[in-house]
């Protein structure tokens, strides 16, 4: 029986993101050439509830296949649950079109990837400014905002460097600055220290904690060092909440 963390209604209203009994299943394959067989269904997440408020750092932990990434995708509005509700910035994600969810992410979610995923042809400054392009900022405002953020993550001397000219830690800090560019309510980080050595990872985690004064941060990780900085850690097993620490 999956252990659930049911949010109370006042807390849910205050949350930057809230998941209420969300499940997610996937259908694998097409059931044979003639479609005669039943396609196997994989239950990736089963009635999970959680909420994250601004100023909180919440970790998601669990072994591979436990549903960490699936939950992170749902919280970030990248995917929609099969059942249950994800409320992001007051909107029920399930009711939105793909275009509306993209706009919701742009306005409210910053994403930090394990492998940084910077655009390798663009400078650090241009990478950070990317979300601001979509938001229609002027060139001057984009530059100013990007330079401020890169200064905050300690990369003011690397503005025009391309990702290939930066170390892994520097790239992840650029990615973090990019995630903060639109001043989102929620920052999700998927294994943010997975590609970094422990010292560099620690520095990135410190930055994540620092920004959590204003933003809600959800990070999925295997790394105990990363989970140690979290206010709460939701442990998942077989798609369900095993415990919350």
């Amino acid at each position: 029986m999956a252990q659930q963390q049911v949010p109370d209604s006042d807390a849910a209203a205050d949350a930057a993101v809230a998941a209420d009994a969300v499940s997610r299943s996937y259908t694998r394959g097409g059931g044979g050439i003639f479609g005669g067989g039943d396609a196997p269904t994989v239950q990736a997440l089963n009635e999970v509830s959680m909420q994250v408020r601004r100023g909180e750092v919440v970790g998601i932990a669990g072994p591979s296949g436990s549903g960490k990434s699936t939950l992170l995708h749902l919280l970030a509005g990248l995917d929609v649950p099969t059942s249950g509700t994800v409320t992001l910035a007051g909107d029920d994600v399930s009711t939105l079109s793909g275009r509306q969810r993209a706009r919701l992410r742009l306005d409210n979610v910053g994403i930090v990837f394990q492998r940084f995923h910077l655009l390798d042809a663009l400078s650090a400054r241009s990478n950070v400014a990317l979300p601001l392009v979509e938001l229609g900022y002027s060139k001057g405002r984009r530059r100013e905002r990007a330079e401020t953020l890169l200064d905050e993550v300690g990369l003011d001397g690397r503005l025009t460097h391309k990702p290939g000219q930066l170390s892994g830690g520097e790239q992840q800090r650029v990615a973090l600055a990019r995630a903060l560019a639109s001043e989102p309510a929620l920052v999700v980080a998927d294994e943010p220290t997975g590609e970094l050595d422990s010292e560099t990872g620690e520095r990135v985690l410190d930055l994540l904690v620092d920004i959590a004064d204003e933003q809600a941060v959800v990070l999925a990780s295997h790394d105990q060092q990363a989970l140690d900085v979290c206010d709460r850690v939701v442990h998942l097993r077989d798609g369900a909440v095993e415990r919350v620490v």
Partner: peptide, 16 residues
């Protein structure tokens, strides 16, 4: 695809 997927994940619209 990885970089275009990144743009999509960041919220850059399909039109953009």
């Amino acid at each position: 695809r990885e970089q275009l997927g990144t743009l999509a994940a960041l919220g850059v619209s399909a039109r953009s």
